[in-house]
Design a protein around this nucleic acid. Structure first.
Length: 801
DNA sequence: GAGTTTGAAACT
DNA sequence: CAGTTTCAAACTC
């Protein structure tokens, strides 16, 4: 079990902690990974975000493997750190499971040559499997537990990262660049891989991130950051890749922490930035940014059942602590596991993807053996105060789409999984790199099975940068590698002709491979798609339990902040079924459609808001966006400075309701009307006596409901407790439970007694209260008789039997 | 449950 | 942009 210690908060610098997207991926041996150079990445898509800054930590299990891991950023003997602006920093540390042999070259801390902004080999890998990062002093490398040093233990290995200053840029140039190594950021041709730890600007007013973290491979991620010309937003990505020597092969655990940052000059357009092409496209939008953590783990072993990803309590609500990657055992490398996990906590979304990479020989996609998957992921997200455990939603049966839904939230993920057609290609990819010496540098290991993308879409933000591939488009939107067929959502090049519309997908809409032969194109899938797909195993993970839960686990208690406001009382509540009859649920009249969801368990007629009518639905979405580009944005958002925290984005237009009925969208949202409302006779303002009266009534009604609920709960508890307490005599000998004696006849007799008592009370003209009491007393006596009889019967049975 | 009211969405 | 129509939810009986 991998556990991220509570110190994880301090493990990473604040900049990193502010990461909004964290992807942890553990994959197969580096050999299985596809060199970035071999991956046909789409042309750089202009993004309005700044160059993502990525820190990648990779630990190789063996010296050779380490070399491979270092291919991503450094050579074995290279502890040098160079800084490249806009480049990504990949810190790869080779850590052998066992004390490294002298022959095993390992990066040592040469000392800090760079300033705060730069680290020149400030990290050291100790013999005890530790990676120590210290931008300030190299001494920290030798001092494992020195103050300010934070450790991350992973499978016996430790990653020790000392507290780093704000801006940290680490560049690990290759002293011996290898062919196929990933290009450095800013210079695709350069063989040296530069990974940059981006200083987080410490923006206090982080905006909601619509950004999507869809990076399954470091190459993609790096490539995205490298080629992202737009820098309206800073993206911080921390990728930690751990490669351990497993009996069956090395494994790589990658931690990708991506944080979009608000650039000072972020324009309104920059607020849109979704992803695609496996690229992280953070997006700034007004409001508080929901944090997104995508943890993708690919393990060669299937024994992930005990893996846990506890996240230590957050240092602050705005900070995200990650992460541990479940350990993987080499026991069953052939089996693949796909385990997407999304966790939403407060403003954070934690998406955990776990997939076992197939054995190199088989090259099986993660969906090839869904039935064998028994992923159990425990994700403990340390919220502000109390940790929360999230639900994992593995959807192994969907070959191309793995959905990740944040329960109770409006954030939805769909992991796009490459349709793995040929295992041979994958096998070649995985086996071609058996020799570390020839292992091409790979900052991130491409999943041999598939390329996965998690596409969280925040409702409030349009996705300008997301240009889904049209169903009929043949644009180069598929990123493939020579080994595997990989498809990425993001098109290689912007498609202006469709971008204006399709990039503004409704909330909860995700891009996924369109159904049909050839796996060509992508469909827009709303979050409810999850409910329309065969759901196999849903795992609800608790802190102390890794057992599976029932499929009902989909109803997670995750709370997600929307626009900086808790939506626990709204978004987590099951949406009411619609009753549309004429709109085909393809217009905003339909709440389901308006919320970017499929109709599910609705009462609508002639509904087109489903997978069967995806084409129509797409058109409808496009039409809505044509009419109003912000049609799918939340209507309730933050108001201006000095105004109420929440207000209707457009304001209401009530004429007759006085804005005190649910006709009024403001009132319905439990917010006061604002200056932008055009209502007539508005009574929905702070000092309104009518409003206060209604509020009091509503509160009173709510209290009553709560009291009733509590009473019922208490009664049930008491009954259960009563049965439990009276049971020992019966159950001690393994007998049946007392309620076994509550047979139909007994129940009928009890009812007769109660009715008789009621009649008695009625005949004697007893007050209702007295009558009720009489009935209850009679009921109590009946219960006692039943219990007594049950106990006696048990005793008799014990004697006779 | 049927009918009415209401206001947002859609349409012109 | 304004007026009208459509629509489905909210509300009433």
């Amino acid at each position: 079990m991998d556990i991220v210690s509570p110190e994880l908060n301090s493990l990473l610098p604040d900049e990193i902690m502010d990461t909004e997207v964290i992807v942890i991926e553990e994959e197969l041996p580096a050999e299985a990974s596809v060199p970035l150079a071999q991956v046909e990445l789409p042309a750089p898509v202009p993004m309005e975000t700044e160059v993502p800054e990525i820190v990648s930590l990779s630990a190789a299990g063996t010296p050779t493997q380490r070399t491979q891991a270092l291919t991503t950023s450094t050579s074995t003997d290279s502890s040098q750190c160079s800084m490249g602006s806009g480049a990504q920093l990949l810190l790869t540390a080779s850590v052998a499971p066992r004390p490294p042999t002298p022959a095993a070259p390992k990066p040592t801390s040469p000392g800090v040559s760079g300033g705060l902004q730069r680290l020149t080999g400030p990290f050291a890998i100790q013999g005890n499997h530790q990676i120590i990062l210290n931008k300030v002093s190299a001494t920290a490398s030798s001092e494992e537990k020195s103050p300010g040093t934070h450790m991350l233990k992973q499978e016996g290995q430790k990653l020790v990262v000392t507290a780093m200053g704000k801006p940290i840029v680490l560049t690990l140039p290759h002293t011996s660049p290898k062919p196929g190594s990933t290009q450095t950021a800013g210079d695709a041709k350069a063989q040296t891989q530069q990974f940059k730890v981006v200083t987080i600007g410490g923006r206090p007013d982080l905006k909601p991130m619509v950004g999507v973290q869809a990076v399954s491979t470091a190459s993609q991620l790096l490539g995205s950051s490298q080629h992202s010309p737009l820098q309206a937003q800073q993206l911080k990505t921390v990728q930690i890749t751990k490669k351990t020597q497993a009996s069956s092969g090395p494994m790589i655990t990658k931690f990708i922490i991506t944080k979009p940052l608000n650039s000072k000059g972020v324009s309104a357009q920059t607020s849109v930035s979704p992803v695609i092409t496996g690229r992280v496209i953070p997006q700034n939008t007004p409001g508080t940014p929901p944090r997104t953590i995508a943890i993708s783990e690919t393990s060669a072993a299937q024994t992930v059942s005990s893996s846990k990803v506890p996240i230590s309590p957050l240092k602050s609500p705005s900070k995200l602590t990650v992460v541990s990657v479940a350990s993987q055992s080499p026991s069953s490398p052939q089996k693949s596991v796909a385990l997407p996990i999304n966790v939403a906590l407060g403003q954070q979304i934690l998406a955990v993807q776990q997939s076992t990479a197939t054995s190199p020989a088989k090259g099986v996609s993660n969906t090839s053996t869904p039935q064998t998957m028994k992923p159990v992921q425990t994700v403990a997200v340390g919220g502000v105060g109390t940790p929360q455990f999230k639900t994992i939603f593995p959807l192994p049966t969907s070959p191309n789409v793995q959905q990740i839904q944040v329960p109770g939230s409006r954030f939805h993920y769909v992991r796009l999984v490459t349709a793995t057609t040929g295992s041979g290609a994958t096998a070649s990819a995985s086996t071609s790199t058996n020799s570390p010496a020839i292992q091409p540098a790979k900052p991130m290991v491409v999943n041999t099975a598939a390329v996965r993308m998690s596409v969280p879409i925040v409702p409030a933000q349009p996705m300008k940068q997301v240009v889904p591939k049209p169903l009929t488009s043949s644009a180069p939107q598929v990123a493939t590698s020579s080994q595997t067929q990989q498809r990425l959502i993001m098109p290689a090049t912007p498609l202006p002709q469709i971008q204006p519309n399709l990039t503004k997908l409704p909330p909860g809409t995700v891009l996924a491979p369109a159904p049909g032969p050839g796996n060509v194109g992508y469909a827009v899938l709303p979050a409810q798609y999850v409910t329309q797909l065969p759901q196999t195993t849903f795992v609800t993970l608790a802190s102390s339990s890794s057992s599976f839960s029932t499929p009902t686990g989909i109803q997670s208690q995750a709370r997600l902040s929307l626009n900086g406001l808790s939506t626990s009382d709204s978004s987590s509540r099951p949406r009411k079924p619609c009753n549309c009859t004429k709109s085909q649920c393809l217009k905003l009249y339909c709440d389901c459609f308006a919320n970017g969801e499929f109709c599910n368990n609705c009462n609508c007629t002639n509904c087109f808001n489903n997978l069967e009518h995806e084409t129509e639905r797409l058109k409808a979405i496009k039409a809505c966006l044509d009419r109003n580009p912000e049609a799918f944005k939340p209507k309730i958002g933050k108001g201006k400075e000095g105004e109420s925290d929440r207000r209707h984005s457009k304001g209401c237009n009530c004429k007759r309701s006085g804005c005190l009925k649910n006709y009024c969208e403001c009132y319905e949202a439990k917010i006061m009307c604002s200056s932008i409302c055009k209502c007539v006779g508005c009574k929905n303002f702070e000092e309104s006596p009518e409003r206060k009266t209604l509020m009091h009534l509503a509160d009173a009604a709510e209290v009553r409901v709560q009291q009733q609920t509590a009473a019922k709960t208490k009664l049930s508890s008491q009954i259960s407790d009563l049965l439990t307490r009276t049971m020992p005599a019966i159950t001690s000998g393994g007998g049946k439970l007392p309620y076994t004696f509550v047979t139909k006849e007994v129940a009928e007799a009890t009812c007769d007694c109660l009715m008789e008592q009621a009649e008695q009370a009625e005949l004697t003209d007893q007050p209702q209260a007295v009558a009720e009491r009489m009935i209850l007393e009679e009921f109590g006596q009946c219960l006692m008789k039943i219990i007594s009889s049950a106990g006696q019967a048990k005793a008799d049975c014990s004697i006779n039997c």
